[in-house]
């Protein structure tokens, strides 16, 4: 039995928590596409799921994970989902603060570049939109969308930075 759900998350950690919640109820994630999830019915609580930004990761990395009992599930838009059987112990991709910080930095970099691109295109579209042409109405609309994305991304960057700063503070007194 399959379940298809449309749901859009802005926060990747909230999305992961929701996917794990579904797994607890016996709905195991099989595929993801931007806001579209396909689950398969199975034994409740059988798996733990994790997502990861894998923009610069190669095949070698996925093969490495596979040798660690980690099953690759789905990849879309640079984000991957994995799962591990709960009976095989806890499942975290990163176990110490320094590797967690490294990971958060790569997320932050991506979010910041998305923000700047939207800021740039927002102004370009606004500039065309305020011009003389009669078709320019559309550009004004798109520029508004660009600015909405900028606002959303700024909130996400703030969240990631706050997590990062929390971890960095721990590193002052703890090693990992």
């Amino acid at each position: 039995m399959k379940k298809r759900v449309y749901r859009f998350f802005l926060d990747y950690e909230q999305e992961e928590a929701w996917v794990n919640n579904m797994a607890e109820q016996g709905w195991h994630l099989k595929r993801t596409m931007l806001g579209y999830f396909i689950f398969e019915k199975g034994e409740p609580g059988q798996y733990i799921y994790r997502n990861e930004l894998v923009k610069n990761k190669n095949q070698d990395y996925f093969e490495f994970l596979e040798t660690m009992d980690i099953e690759f599930i789905s990849k879309f838009g640079g984000w991957a989902y994995y799962r591990k059987q709960k009976s095989k112990g806890p499942f975290e991709l990163f176990s110490d603060s320094s590797s967690k910080i490294q990971y958060l930095k790569s997320i932050s970099r991506l979010f910041i570049s998305i923000t700047f691109l939207n800021l740039l295109f927002g102004f370009i579209n606004l500039n065309i939109g305020l011009g003389e042409s009669t078709e320019s109405f559309l550009n004004t609309g798109i520029s508004l969308l660009n600015f909405v994305v900028v606002m959303i991304m700024c909130i996400q960057i703030y969240k990631v930075e706050r997590r990062k700063i929390g971890l960095q503070r721990e590193l002052h007194i703890f090693e990992g």
Binding site: S95, D96, S99
Partner: peptide, 10 residues
Amino acid sequence: VRLGAGTIYG
């Protein structure tokens, strides 16, 4: 000490 797969790989 339970090392995460991503941590070991890095």
